[in-house]
Structure formats: C-alpha cells, structure tokens
Amino acid sequence: MTPPPRRPRRRPRRPSRPPGRARLAVGSVALCAVTGLAVVLLQSPDRAGTPTPAAAEPAPPAPVPAVGPPDTPSPRAEQPASAASSAGGSPAGPATTTAPAAGGAADLGGCPVAPADSIWRTPVDRLPAAADSAALVAAIGTAKHLKADFGAGTWEGAPFGIPITAVPPGTPTARVAFDYAEESDRGPYPIPAYELYDAHPQGDGSWRAASGAVFDLRSNALRPTGRTSADAAGLPILPGLARYDEASGGTIDHALRITVPRSRKAALWPARHQAGSSTDAALPPMGLRLRLKAGVDVSGLPPQARAVAQALKTYGAIVADNGSAWYVSGTQDDRWDNTALARLGALTGADFEAVDVSALQLAPDSAAARHP
C-alpha cells in the first residue's frame, strides 16, 4: 500500500539556478580508504505525490559499476524551483541499487557513514534546548507535519528517496565545468560518484554542473568556510540519510537530514554555507540541530517509523537545505513500508525543539565532537 497523496510542494532553488532549467543532482559520495568503495547518491529534490508501489519484498540487487561522466553542486536560496529530473550518470545511465548490507547502523558496505566521533553520530538527547527554540520551531511551522521524504517505489519515474550506488575503484572519470568553480572540488570526477549539483552531460562526454564536492567518509574535515555542496549547508548528504538496513535492525545511530521552508542568512557549525536572504534571527540557520522532544510517545509507531522517530529523539536532525517543512531524508529502497513511514505524519513541528550543540565543538573546521 502507498501513503495518501501529498500536496505538491516545490523545492526552493539556489539564487544562481536559471528558472525552468532541468537539473540533474548527482549526490553524495565519499571514498572509503580501506575498501576503496565510493558510495554514490543520486539526489532528487523534495517531491510530493503518491509513490508508485514497489514489488513485494524484492531481493536487493548487487552493486553495479557506474559508467560515464558527471559533476554538480552550488549555493541556494528561498525561491520556488521547477521539478527536477533525477537520472544517473551518462546517457547510458548507471544503475542505482540497494547498497550491500551494513555491518552496523552507521556502517555502509564496510565504510562508516561518518567517523565515530563525528557530530553526525553524537547523541544530543541530554543537551539543553536552544534559548530561541520556540521562535525557530515556529518559523519552520509548529502545525506542519513530519514527512518521511523517502520509501519504496518511484514517483513520476524517479526514485522515491535517494538511492545509494556502490561504485568500484577504476570507474572512469570525467571532466566537469562548474558554475561555481571557486566553491567546488577539482576533478576529474568518477560519475556518478561524489556530490554534484545541477549536473548536465555535454555532447563531448564532459559534464556541466553548478558545483561539486568530494567527501572522505573516514575524515571529520569540513569544507572551507563559505563553500556549498549538493546541500546548501555545505555538508555531505550520506550521513544524514535514514537507511532501511539500519531501521530494520531497530536502530539509526546518527542524525538525519531535514529541510526547512526558509532559512536565515547564517550557518551554524558544522554547516559551512548559508542559503537565506534574511537576517531575521527567528529563522533557522543552516546547520541548526533539531530534536524530537523526550516526552513525545513514539511507542505506538510501526517499527520502521519508530526507528526514525527514535533517531530524531536521540541524535536529532541537521538543517541541510531549503525545502518543505519537516521533510526528513532517506534512501530509496523497495523494502521500506510506505504505509508505516506515513505514520510519522502524526508528529508535528510542535513536537520538536532546537538544540544548542555549541558545547560539543572541538574545532571550527572539524566535524569531530565531544560526546556529552
């Protein structure tokens, strides 16, 4: 079964993005130093509608090598965006697959989604609420409902969520020209590995993208201040995705990625880039940590939804981009139960609070954190 139809919402776009331009966002990647595996995400923007149901309990396919060339990422701001296409790699189209079963919740195919001491993997359930929590939550929307912007099946032919593709060493690289070269990591890029934003294949085999970022899964190094990524906050997408393999085990042991309708022209650690047009202190900045309140009862939720809700209690969510209010990101995986995930909609903004994580920072240019 599928959840009831969602009201269409359009994802805000970065100021540089031309109106009506088709976009291909080739998502988050990082290299795992031990295995040489590149984890690739094809990022689709927030979507509304009814996902096409997947076949019942399909066996997860094996990782498929990606072939072809690409590149993309860049800054953004609160403007309505046209619907984006999400397709993989070259015209031949690399397949996106379910990643291999992980050895642990914060582990993916032998690679950690982030170092053990990363702010992504640091519990925030015992930290104080931010002094301005009420105003920040109100700006996002106290009456707005939480939404799992991921699940099984497709929506308008695109994956419902962000698929992960394992790309082996030796994948061909491609040249990428960037609109924001000063904010992008230099190539060449093994497409579709690494984070690319607004990427388009060119006739000569190269790619054109707004920006590009490369993340090392075993490092806490942050991007230089002021640099974006495929997310407005300049953060990797992979560590913030809810994955079926961890939820099915009952534990998601890291923070999740979340979007807000409007953001302040500011970035809080660990974010590196802002995406707002207003300095209004009541608006949430990029990097803001949000948390499901301890007193919210999630025991009645189905197991998959309960795992997501508990992660939001223990680890919270990091504001990573402008988009729909309270949309939480996860992988596209045909093993998700869309009906169960839809039950997260019983939670609203009033059930959340902003968290002050400033005491966890060890160094401004590192995502390493003190564990409270």
Rank of each mutant, 00 (worst) to 15 (best):
T331E: 14
A105L: 08
T314A: 06
Q274G: 10
A311K: 00
R14I: 09
A166F: 11
S85Y: 03
A307N: 02
S206V: 10
A83L: 11
G93W: 09
I164E: 03
G93L: 15
A346I: 14
E57W: 15
S206C: 10
A282G: 15
Q274E: 13
P188N: 02
D46R: 03
P53F: 03
P201T: 15
P169A: 07
D321L: 02
P5I: 05
P18L: 08
A77R: 14
Q79K: 06
R243A: 06
P51T: 04
A138N: 03
L217F: 02
V67T: 12
A181K: 11
P18G: 06
R291V: 03
H371D: 11
A281E: 13
H254Y: 00
E182V: 05
A56M: 11
A143D: 07
R243S: 07
G323F: 00
K144A: 10
P115I: 00
L108Q: 02
P69K: 15
A138W: 10
L301W: 10
V34E: 13
A55F: 09
P51V: 03
P159Y: 05
V296L: 13
T72H: 12
G212H: 08
T228I: 02
P65Q: 01
T2I: 14
I119P: 08
A230G: 14
A221W: 05
S206M: 07
A66T: 03
D185G: 08
R23W: 05
A369L: 01
R257W: 08
G68P: 15
R243L: 03
G110C: 02
